[in-house]
Nucleic acid binder design. Sequence first.
DNA 1: CGATTTTGACCGGCGC
DNA 2: GCGCCGGTCAAAATCG
Length: 421
Amino acid sequence: MEEDGRRGRSLELSGSAAVVDMMDFFAKERATPASTTDHGVPHLGLKKEDPAINIGFQLFPATLERDQPMVQQQLPPDEDNDAKRVLEAMQAELARTNEENQRLKNMLSDATNNYNALHVHLIRLMQERNLIDGNTQFHEITSEVDESQEEGDEGGAVVPLQFIDLKPASVVDEESHSIKDEGTQRRRSSSPADLPPSKSSEQEHEASTRKARVSVRARSSAPMISDGCHWRKYGQKMAKGNPCPRAYYRCTMAAGCPVRKQVQRCAKDRSVLITNYEGTHNHPLPPAAMAMASTISAAAAMLLSGSTTSSEGVTNPSNPLARAIMPSSSGVVTISASAPFPTVTLDLTRTSSPLPASSSSRVFGQPPHNQSKPQSVADTVSVATAAMVADPNFSAALAAAISSIMGRKGDGGTHQTSNSK
DNA sequence: CGATTTTGACCGGCGC
DNA sequence: GCGCCGGTCAAAATCG
């Protein structure tokens, strides 16, 4: 986006702006009204490619208001009855089109509301199940998502879906104040005045979860995947063990948005672009970004609900969401609770990843030089849902998955929460 | 001219 | 304490 390859300094990150699978998908998302993609097609019975939507939404309103008076002005005063009848017929047709247009708008609005309500409901159900399971660590994830949903309800149909963020609300609030202040806050953090009287277990937990991330792996020759948000590059570093530089971006869609992301090519397969998201957006997301956020939220909530476990990064077909997605994709979602921070990974590489399962742990923000240390791979929980992002049928898949999940509430499973440290 | 990128410096965490 | 490393800052450069 910002990186268009006009400069040659940033090595591989400044390559040509090629289009990848996921970019194709998000480009489609942007070109279509939000509700047509996010609510799920079944509500409308229309496909998002249906030309009727675009015609009704964009073309008719503009042409109607312009053309109608023009036709009348061009008519001579003594025009014959045939011309009048044609004119009346045209006007009637335009009126009908207007009505159809309005009806489509209403349908889209309803569908959007339905989708948002379902999404909130889904997250809450997952939270309830986590409470039952007594999984305190993962509970924080869904509760955070839930809070963001409630905030979004204030804005009506627009729900500020956020990338998964495991930080407790207090931490989020602190970080939301000012990005500029963050550095000084971090450097001031050792001040005795800022230190709490005692370090409770809750605070220890906070420290362990404040660095939660979402990692997206996509095969791309582009310098950065298009995720719908606006990013500003604020740094670039050479990471040890990887010849490709790592670029640091922060969200510029709203002032003070604390969300950051890191973009780096995989050392073993340079065609794979690894993007790590960190933080919570403090603003509503555009449709394209919502698609990503929704997917991650749904996948994470689903996984954290404890229906599927795996230590090898493979798909468990008993998972309803996975079942809904699997037919169309080979993508893999992985959630790791490993130190130093829990991470949700979306593997969007269409072919099976050439990397072993353990390599995905490195994506989790852990530099390669840590690989020699004892590190848990067994706490990795995986299921194939990432295809929702890569697959243009994402909406239908998500809707099917949600429906499936709703229908099996209470159906539980084991939940792997082991931590390597 | 404002927005964005580049890039060296700086900081804190961590291991030895 | 020292050095390494990842992450961030901020001034300068660059772009549209």
